[in-house]
Design a protein around this nucleic acid. Sequence first.
DNA 1: CTTTTGTGTGTGAATATTCACTAACATTAA
DNA 2: TTAATGTTAGTGAATATTCACACACAAAAG
Lengths: 196, 196
Amino acid sequence: MTEAISGRQLEIIEAAGKILTASGVGGLTIKNLAKEMKFSESAIYRHFPSKEEIIISLLEYLAKSMDDRYKNAISAKQTPEEKFVTVFQNQFLFFKKNPHFVVAVFSDGLLEESQRINETISKIMGVKMKHLMPIILEGQQKKVFTNAITSEELIHIVMGTFRLQMFKWRVANFQFDISRNGNNMVQSLLTLIKSK
Amino acid sequence: MTEAISGRQLEIIEAAGKILTASGVGGLTIKNLAKEMKFSESAIYRHFPSKEEIIISLLEYLAKSMDDRYKNAISAKQTPEEKFVTVFQNQFLFFKKNPHFVVAVFSDGLLEESQRINETISKIMGVKMKHLMPIILEGQQKKVFTNAITSEELIHIVMGTFRLQMFKWRVANFQFDISRNGNNMVQSLLTLIKSK
DNA sequence: CTTTTGTGTGTGAATATTCACTAACATTAA
DNA sequence: TTAATGTTAGTGAATATTCACACACAAAAG
């Protein structure tokens, strides 16, 4: 399905992410992309057949690296609480290092454009779900997380809180320490969802 | 500051909201707006000096009607829990009636365009905060809401959950009953934040 | 009463700019 | 030599905005 991307392609994807976070969907033009890459507009088309393909590659690259990241972060030996914290810690560190990709979390702006893009966005959401769900379920089974509400509702609350955290970070122009603030938020969330 | 808007202007604002919901930010062009209004593109400029002004008027109209709506919904006699539920119930009913405006609420997509638009979006966020904050505070003081985490964190979690709910509704193309699903979510949230 | 003038609201055509994308040619490296 | 990768200079389509002008209606002036 997803072909391996070349080094140049990755550079372009990174430039695209940078532009997206800095100036939003409206700013992501071939012209700006070329300027960011320091070569001409037409050179872009040597590496991608279309703009749509660039966006999709960006999202797919993101989905994949998030998936990898999740897999490596969590160890089976950890308690649900530890896993919960680790997952988010990992996430915050990733975005701290690659703030251009915050766009992934709330890629609502891209929503619309094309059917294929929408599907790829859903895929990213799905990746996060896939890794969060078993942790929540295990936590509830072991009665360390509350069973007062369903797993779906718990996940919804957790994901919503996370998304808003990232949103605030972006609006604040990345001016505060996301891994510090983020981990505080995770602790509060944990306090709230632990069964008493 | 905000001048009163004429009947025609309101019609245009509503048409803009309709387009935003149906085709997203990218679809909101003067051409489409004129088509929706069933007159020429240039006629739009009889009523608004620029497209930016249309978007800002839309957002400001939204902020105002949300503020009014909040004020009328909550009565001093209610318990914090009741107020909490009422606020959201009210919100869901509003959007059920005017789904075109959902785009504005989590208008991360609009975010970019212009400084003035960004400020107006923040204003909308602020309105919600303004009404939610005293409810949370009162609830914590009366010890009906948990004091295990701070008010700011509580509000963050609540707002994040709400925003995600609206996001899901939009992605689902408004196909489920937001006031039903929404109220379920509010109940879960309440269960979680009540002190035990 | 009729004419004049002003105002609100519409039109179609034209503006400059930006967009994604392409064709022809040049450089570089294996 | 050949393939990959770059540049220059275009394309047509879409964009927001402006233009000169038209029609309906109401107030003011004759």
